[in-house]
Structure formats: C-alpha cells, structure tokens
Computed example of a mutant assay.
Amino acid sequence: MSKTHLKPLSFQRHGHKFWKRFTSFDHTRHVTECSVVAAEVFPVAAAFPLVFRKTESGVELVAVFSLTEEAENSFVSETGIWLAPYLPSAMRCPPFDAEPMPRGGQVKDAQFQLLIDESLGLISDDPRDEAFYRETGALSSNLEAVKRFFQSRMSSAQTTKAICDVLADMNLLAPLTQHEGCSLPKGCWGISPDGLNSLTNRQLATLATCGALQLVHAHQVSLSHIAWLAQAQSRMTQNPSSVDLSRKTNADGFLSALADAQTNETSWGPNSELHAYAQ
C-alpha cells in the first residue's frame, strides 16, 4: 500500500488535536494488497493468496485481496465489514501507520516514525475523542499502545525482509503471472519449484534455520485461494445485478462471525492492544 498520503505524527502538528477510533473498513475498499510479516504468515495464508513483490528496498511479502488492480477489495462488504477470517496486521490501526528510519551502529530494535492518515476524517478538535499527546508533550497512553504495536510489527518486518533476502539470494523467486489458469496482478513473484528441488541439503538446512521454509510452505498453500477468488470476482463483474441480496447479507454475517472466531485464536486478534481500536 502506498504511504504517500501519510503525514509524520508530531506535537507541533497534532499536539492539540484528537483522534477517533475507526468503525468501518470502507477506506480499504480499493486496497488490493498489503504487506505481511512473518509473525502472521500462517493465518494470512489460510485466508488470502501470498505472493512476493520486488521493491526498491528489497523483496516484500504481500497478501492479495484482488486479482486485478481495477477491482475492489473482495473482502470488504457493502457496509464496510471485513469479511475474511483474518485481518492482516498492516490494516489494524487507522489512522496510524509507521515507516522505518535509517539504522546505524549496533541498533537491534526497529526504529520507526509514527505516521497518520489525515484524509480519513478521524482527526478532530473534540476533547471527548482520544488525545494524541499529554500536556507534557509525551504520547498519550493509547498512542503508547499504538507505538508498542508498531515496534512489534517492525521487528517482525525486519525478520521477514531477512528471510526474503535469503530466498532471493538462492534464486528461488520466479515471476508468477498465473496459477492454474488464473491471471495474477503484474509484478508478482513466487517460489520456483525447479529452484526449490535443486537445493542442496546445506541450503535446505539454511532455509529451515532462518524460518524460510515455513514462509515457502505458507506461500505454496495460499495459492489455492487464487481459483475461488478469480471465480468470485468474475461473477460479480459479469453480472452484479443478479446477486441475491438476502443471500449476500446472510453470507456477510456468516463470514463476519467466522472472522471473529478465527482472529480470537491468533496473536494478532481482537484481544490485542491494537485491534481494540477497531471496536
């Protein structure tokens, strides 16, 4: 997801402002993919196709919500409910986000800048809403919780990048344009079966040690979602007026209940500090 619309959080700009907790995922309707970190790779793979993208900063692991850039996010209902059985961590804390800062020396912890999306209408002048800062200039308690969440996520993102670098260095990534006859968005990469089969025992041991084998297996299993996602998008595009609204409403309710049940079982679920902001 592009972050060009985000602004750095600062006391000078936001010290006397307040923020609201988001109540709808309507703002993600045109989000067709998001970054994924190693700590959540299995629940993500159980819900979405997982692919790789090559960026200026290296290889990134992403969850795919739509197989065409023009189509809307398939996992957002008409009323803004998130329908998938898992909510990726990158989408958990509107209006907040974070970007890594340059690292130097022996710094081990992820250094980052808190960002805020000022276009979502979640910033206010109403003191009944959440404060950004204390009068002393320190972050409010709720913003401290946001910071802890991003600290954890950024740490896992560093681990994920290191794993992706290993996969790239072993030449295991190959362009992924289609799967079982279904086309994927441009610029997707996947694990090369031939490259994987040609690895030496030492290389396989390296993949197992750094956690790359788990990521590889999650990616391979996740590709099974592509066929039904393509079919669902094709039906909605070809004849959206034929959808039985009563059945769609029931399906939305069922998927929402399934989402609540499954995310309760994960470390990134609704009982975590951050996810509570979506309530």
Rank of each mutant, 00 (worst) to 15 (best):
91 M>Q: 09
96 F>K: 10
84 A>N: 11
81 I>V: 13
29 R>S: 15
74 S>T: 13
130 E>P: 00
32 T>A: 08
29 R>Y: 04
69 E>A: 15
90 A>E: 07
101 M>V: 07
80 G>K: 01
51 V>E: 09
34 C>P: 02
93 C>E: 07
38 A>T: 14
31 V>P: 01
125 D>H: 01
39 A>I: 02
65 F>T: 00
37 V>D: 07
121 G>Y: 05
63 A>C: 07
126 D>M: 05
108 K>Y: 03
132 F>E: 04
118 E>M: 08
115 L>P: 03
119 S>G: 12
31 V>W: 06
88 P>D: 14
123 I>K: 01
73 N>K: 03
105 G>V: 04
94 P>D: 09
59 V>C: 05
28 T>E: 14
130 E>I: 07
33 E>H: 13
80 G>N: 05
69 E>I: 10
100 P>D: 05
64 V>G: 04
115 L>Q: 06
40 E>D: 10
46 A>R: 05
116 I>C: 11
91 M>Y: 01
75 F>K: 00
70 E>W: 00
76 V>E: 02
95 P>K: 12
64 V>H: 01
57 S>Q: 15
83 L>M: 15
40 E>K: 06
71 A>S: 14
37 V>N: 09
74 S>I: 01
54 K>A: 14
84 A>Q: 11
105 G>P: 11
60 E>K: 14
70 E>T: 13
88 P>Q: 02
58 G>S: 09
91 M>L: 15
50 L>D: 10
67 L>Q: 09
116 I>H: 08
121 G>P: 01
97 D>A: 14
75 F>W: 06
82 W>T: 00
121 G>Q: 08
33 E>V: 02
90 A>K: 11
116 I>R: 11
64 V>K: 02
83 L>H: 00
99 E>I: 15
82 W>I: 03
31 V>I: 11
121 G>A: 08
107 V>A: 15
77 S>A: 13
38 A>Y: 14
104 G>M: 04
50 L>R: 10
115 L>G: 03
64 V>W: 03
66 S>G: 13
37 V>F: 00
126 D>L: 04
123 I>Y: 01
72 E>K: 08
77 S>W: 03
63 A>I: 10
58 G>R: 07
125 D>K: 06
78 E>S: 15
53 R>N: 03
102 P>Y: 00
51 V>H: 10
60 E>I: 07
112 F>N: 05
41 V>W: 04
132 F>G: 04
118 E>D: 10
49 P>Q: 12
57 S>M: 07
35 S>I: 09
53 R>L: 08
126 D>W: 09
56 E>I: 04
59 V>T: 15
44 V>Q: 00
111 Q>G: 02
124 S>K: 02
105 G>E: 12
104 G>N: 03
59 V>I: 14
53 R>C: 07
115 L>Y: 04
32 T>V: 08
106 Q>S: 13
30 H>E: 12
85 P>C: 09
112 F>G: 06
110 A>L: 12
65 F>E: 08
39 A>E: 13
84 A>P: 03
66 S>I: 12
64 V>T: 11
69 E>K: 15
99 E>R: 15
107 V>Q: 13
87 L>H: 05
96 F>T: 05
130 E>L: 12
116 I>Y: 10
41 V>I: 15
